[in-house]
Computed example of a mutant assay.
Amino acid sequence: MNIKQYLDSTYLKTASQAGISEEENSLVVKNAIQEAIDEEFKLIMIRPEYVSLAKEMIVNANSALLVGTVIDFPEGTSSIETKIKEANEAVENGADDLDFVCNYEAFKNGDISLVKEEILIGTQIGLANNKTVKWIIEAAALSDKEIIQLSALIKNVVISNFKEDDYTSVFVKSSTGFYQTENNLPNGATVHSIIIMLENASPLSVKAAGGVRSYEDAVEMISLGVKRIGTSAAKTIADGKNTSNQY
């Protein structure tokens, strides 16, 4: 199976997180964009400040590669106003996919109205600008019951407020890839969690991120029904090798 069109090749580390200089980190990002172009992956997922660079490289290469970026990453606890500001900037810079971190802490604390509002407004911004919207629920921070409830909440907001034709442009995504789990366990994309998400997010699509570490993992996720896979080791996985990368 050629899995490349399922892969969102991902690099989201800041220079400090990577332990390198800003200049060195920019070069890592540039190389990641070029690799995604060369390998014909579905998308390159990068931090907002690099979206314009990616679009320029893609246009120059006459590539079909999409550009995705993250909103309110990685905690998801900022105000709705902050999410709106970041989303509008990403749209202006040419991002194709907006991956919002859902305020799962507010959800866990029972502030359902806030979560519904940010899902509605964020999704409106994306769809109004013909973008794909993904809501990251950080599955490793949730119980099975909470995964069910939050996946269903996102689905219900979308079904209640948007046209059926829009459903394919909204995803529920398992993880930021940055959530710290014990013993380096997958932090989102476990078969168990993904099945729960698929069952409760449908008809919305699911993106598996945080723990897909081999070609076999990727194929298994695709066979379950996942439409996109986020990984910082896209080429390694596409080449049939294993990675120890956390996300």
Rank of each mutant, 00 (worst) to 15 (best):
I3A: 11
K4G: 02
L7Y: 04
L7C: 09
S9M: 09
S9C: 07
L12T: 03
K13Q: 14
A15S: 15
S16A: 15
S16F: 15
G19P: 09
G19W: 02
S21F: 04
E24W: 05
N25T: 08
V28E: 02
N31P: 04
A32K: 10
I33D: 06
I33G: 06
Q34E: 13
A36P: 00
E39F: 13
M45L: 13
M45G: 06
I46K: 01
R47P: 06
R47S: 13
E49G: 00
Y50P: 02
Y50W: 12
S52G: 00
A54M: 11
K55R: 14
E56I: 14
I58F: 09
I58V: 09
A64R: 12
L66D: 08
L66K: 15
V70T: 12
P74T: 12
E75T: 13
S79H: 05
I80G: 09
T82Q: 12
I84E: 08
K85N: 10
E86Y: 13
E86L: 14
V91M: 10
E92Y: 03
E92W: 00
D97L: 13
D97V: 15
A106E: 11
N109M: 10
D111G: 01
I112H: 07
I112Y: 11
L114D: 05
V115I: 12
K116E: 13
K116I: 03
E117Q: 15
E117T: 14
E118G: 06
L120P: 08
I121V: 15
I121M: 06
I121W: 04
G122Y: 05
T123C: 06
I125R: 07
A128T: 11
A128H: 11
N129H: 15
N130M: 11
K131G: 09
T132E: 03
T132M: 09
W135R: 06
A139L: 00
A139D: 11
A141R: 09
L142P: 04
S143W: 05
E146W: 01
I148T: 12
I148K: 12
L150N: 00
S151Q: 02
N161R: 10
K163C: 09
E164H: 07
Y167N: 03
V172K: 03
V172L: 02
G177F: 03
G177M: 03
F178A: 12
Y179R: 04
E182S: 14
E182K: 15
N184K: 14
L185A: 15
P186Q: 02
T190A: 06
V191H: 07
V191S: 10
I195R: 15
I196P: 03
M197P: 00
A201Y: 04
S202C: 07
S205Y: 11
A208S: 04
G210H: 02
G210I: 01
G210P: 00
R213A: 07
S214W: 08
S214E: 01
A218R: 03
V219R: 04
I222R: 04
L224G: 08
R228M: 08
S232G: 14
A234Y: 07
K235C: 11
K235A: 14
T236W: 02
G240P: 04
T243D: 05
T243C: 09
N245P: 00
Q246L: 10
Y247S: 10
